[in-house]
Amino acid sequence: MKHFTMAAMLIGALALSACDRNSRFGDDAATAGAGGIVPGSPSDPTSPAYFEQTIGDRVLFAVDQSTLSAEAQDVLAKQATWLMENPEFSAIVEGHADEQGTREYNLALGARRASAVQAYLIDRGVAPNRLRTVSYGKERPLAICSDESCYAQNRRAVTVLTAGAGTS
């Protein structure tokens, strides 16, 4: 459950810092999100919780790579379907890297990963104006140990839902 809490914290941090943000899930939901609760139930196919937990909001990458594995493509195909069925949401794709790399390079690498996910979702039919990307490089690890078991979780791209039908 730890990573869901973390994702919710990131949502909270972004919601506070993004000046061009839309309200993510309305004020009530944003408050709940900051407490670690994702809106809706994982068994309700239209809820963000279903997207995050049942489909899976993230894909993982090999060391220094931004290629999408077959497993990642499978998750992203389901994400694309969900996004098309739930047009009231948009998404920010966050790219991340593990700590084994220099800061600037990891920022660029995270951008590559986020962009690979974005391109795949667009290819699967999601409107480009509903998807934005951001890279955190190695600044926001999910798992904090210094070995491959953690690094593997940190080399990720996370599709974070936002309220709103996208920007033109």
Binding site: E104, L107, A111, R112, S115, A119, T133, V134, S135
Partner: peptide, 26 residues
């Protein structure tokens, strides 16, 4: 660009060299 980072001043302080990312390419 989508993101800009890694800035440094030129020796005369009048310009900046930096990285800009667009569509995943920096």
């Amino acid at each position: 660009g989508n993101m800009t980072f890694a800035p440094r001043f030129s020796p005369d302080g009048q310009s900046v060299v930096f990285s800009l990312e667009q569509g995943g390419n920096t």
